[in-house]
Design a binder for these strands. Structure first.
Lengths: 153, 153
DNA sequence: AATTTAGTTCTGTAAATTTTGAACTAACAG
DNA sequence: CTGTTAGTTCAAAATTTACAGAACTAAATT
């Protein structure tokens, strides 16, 4: 397989997006490659060659991606190779999880509230209001997702 | 001012939370300190001493926090010191911005769609569905925030 | 039994990031 | 006009991280 310049550029862009989420560069590029690859299942060596990374980097990154969720692999009888692919089944859940991570800051802010004195009323009420806002989002987001699933039936 | 062990632990936890968002450690600790500090306005040297960081690290981190939004400072006539504090006014917007950043992945996926062949139908329809889902969120989130603001009137 | 395949694991190193320390500046104070 | 305060800036040190290369393993092949 060869990659068009356009696809190569997209791999980098997607890679950078995932880097910003805390992923290591090579893992981000693998994500990018899997999105743009016309064949959705790629072998270890295809990935390695297409991205020009070493075996060890490929191994480490793939295992990380499998452990943390976004990648899985399938095998075929009589073929020792693993075929790596994006786990498309959990995209919505993974996204919801990222929203939840943001909202989970609420827990820290609640702990903050407990250690604060009553002195700085102004700040405290801002804090309480923001906690309430996070609470609201935590409540409403699941129904938003449910509403979408309903609309797809 | 002295910090309880509990507050110190919270500063670290909040610091790590901000590190995961791509912030440098010292800046994350400053965020943590400003959340737990009973006095909401702190001077350069208070921050420096409470967190045990150098002047230059303090300066760099504070300027970064001011540039990127979460911190501001006020001054008092006849006092050359700057009093640094959390910018509480934009918490909701900053959070909305982080949601938007996640959703902005949609643009990359649309570019991906354009480069893909029609071969892998299965994958392509997953991709299209996910793009539609992101589209849906992009549409619905603003009204969710508006709804909260209404309820607070 | 030797070789090939499909990876894994273990240093070592290059690169990037973060932080310090020291010298500097600009404003004000005595 | 000398000293002090409130920072800033820069070079160098320390830390972290990501990756390559080489040696290794376990299964299958010849």
């Amino acid at each position: 397989m060869i990659l068009s310049e356009q696809k190569k550029a997209l791999i980098e862009k997607i890679g950078i997006f995932y880097e910003k989420l805390g992923m290591q560069p090579a893992a981000g590029r693998i994500m990018g490659l899997m999105f743009v690859s016309d064949r959705p299942e790629l072998t270890f060596d295809e990935i390695r060659e297409l991205l020009n990374i070493s075996k060890s980097a490929t191994s480490t990154a793939l295992n990380l991606l499998i452990e943390t969720g976004p990648v899985e692999y399938i095998t075929f009888a009589g073929d020792r190779k693993r075929y790596f692919k994006l786990k498309t089944s959990n995209w919505r859940d993974a996204l919801a999880q990222r929203f939840n991570n943001i909202i989970s800051f609420k827990t820290l802010l609640q702990e903050v509230m407990e250690t604060r004195s009553d002195k700085s009323t102004e700040f405290n009420s801002c804090l309480e209001e923001f906690i309430d806002f996070l609470e609201y989002l935590q409540q409403e987001l699941p129904s938003l997702l449910k509403k979408w699933e309903e609309s797809r039936k």
